[in-house]
């Protein structure tokens, strides 16, 4: 029989592995491909579409980083990771950056030795219940059965919330989103809890979204953002400032529509610095001068990416809320490009 596909694969793997001792940035450039860890499938954030193309809000960040570093947004390999495998994948170097609804917490940053480079989505854990139950506050949920989609810090927040309010509940932790929804819809759970963005996305796909309500309580802070390995600051800077460039571009009014026009030069020095026509920020960070232009040309600025993937005109229909620019009362506030 064919007892040696193995060795062939081993040879190829050995070849493909290459040297990776230098910084991640050099690795990515040498490999000419960015390995980006994503969710295994969360519609709106990271999910393969019917044609097998990954798309979503987190995916757009990956593509922007790939475009900034390699000049081509298609040079990304998306590595689906589960709640279990994501940290090992990053720590072992299988992926260069993890952009997967991962909450920035103290212990992950400090104990697990990762660097969160920023926040691309401010989320919080919420509850969804069928309208017919007549529940209007999460504090009325005493004795309820709660379906949890495991993965982020969901289980811990839930336990904390119910303990703080001194009410009881019965958790049903489910691994995949599809199965958690199935449980909820068939009435095996009274409540479905996960990040509020996920709840909205889920509700949007129901046959009758109006039969379900999101409760007003948001029981946790879930700053979700890309993370990289600790100790490789150059690479961390690249991801951080690519994300910042997307956010700053929205603040400065740079969109995919006027990008070429603005690249020609404007009289706003900050835009010029961002787009690389003034100073040379690209060189400082180890990229080409027009790195931000390349990142922005993929899917536009933060606001455009948001609107295209999860905004109010998509089935997911999320409002900007906390994720608006600071000038609009949100939390997005990038340090200046200077």
């Amino acid at each position: 029989m064919n007892n040696s596909v193995f060795f062939g694969a081993l040879t190829v793997a050995g070849l493909a592995a290459g040297a990776a001792a230098a910084g991640t940035l050099d690795d990515v450039k040498a490999r000419d491909k960015l390995n980006c860890g994503t969710n295994t499938g969360l519609v709106g954030f990271a999910a393969p579409n019917a044609n097998g193309e990954w798309e979503g809000f987190d995916i757009a960040v990956c593509r922007a980083v790939a475009a900034a570093v390699l000049g081509d947004s298609t040079k990304v390999e998306f590595v689906p990771t589960t709640g279990k495998t994501r940290f090992t994948a990053l720590a072992s170097g299988e992926i260069d950056v993890l952009v997967r609804n991962t909450t920035w917490t103290f212990s992950r940053d400090v104990d697990l030795k990762f660097d969160f480079v920023g926040v691309n989505y401010y989320d919080g854990q919420g509850f969804m219940v069928p309208k017919e139950l007549g529940v209007s506050s999460a504090k009325e949920l005493d004795g309820a059965t709660v379906c949890i989609q495991t993965g982020t810090t969901t289980e811990l927040n839930l336990a904390d919330f119910f303990r703080a309010n001194n009410i009881s509940y019965e958790p049903v932790p489910i691994e995949t989103e599809a199965e958690a929804q199935q449980q909820y819809l068939s009435g095996a759970c009274d409540v479905y809890t996960t990040d509020a963005s996920g709840l909205a996305a889920t509700r949007a796909t129901f046959d009758d979204p109006s039969a379900h309500v999101l409760l007003p309580e948001i029981i946790s802070k879930e700053p979700l953002g890309p993370l990289v390995r600790h100790g490789d600051s150059e690479w961390g800077d690249v991801v951080r400032w690519t994300l910042n460039a997307l956010i700053a571009a929205e603040e400065l009014g740079v969109t995919s529509a006027n990008l070429t026009e603005m690249t020609a030069g404007t009289n706003n020095p900050e835009i010029n610095r961002l787009l690389g026509t003034e100073d040379n920020l690209g060189e400082m960070i180890g990229l080409s001068a027009d790195w931000a232009v390349k990142a922005l040309s993929v899917g536009g600025n933060y606001g455009e990416i948001f609107a295209k993937n999860i905004g109010e005109n998509t089935p997911i229909g999320l409002a900007r809320g906390l994720n608006a620019q600071w000038t609009d009362g949100g939390l997005l506030y990038t340090p200046p490009f200077r």
Binding site: T40, G41, L42, V43, A47, P48, N49, A50, T176, E177, A178, E179, Q181, Q182, L185, A204, T205, P315
Partner: peptide, 12 residues
């Protein structure tokens, strides 16, 4: 369990 059941078209 993943992409197909999670897609909006074929949920359920």
């Amino acid at each position: 369990r993943g992409p197909i059941l999670a897609s909006a078209d074929w949920k359920g």
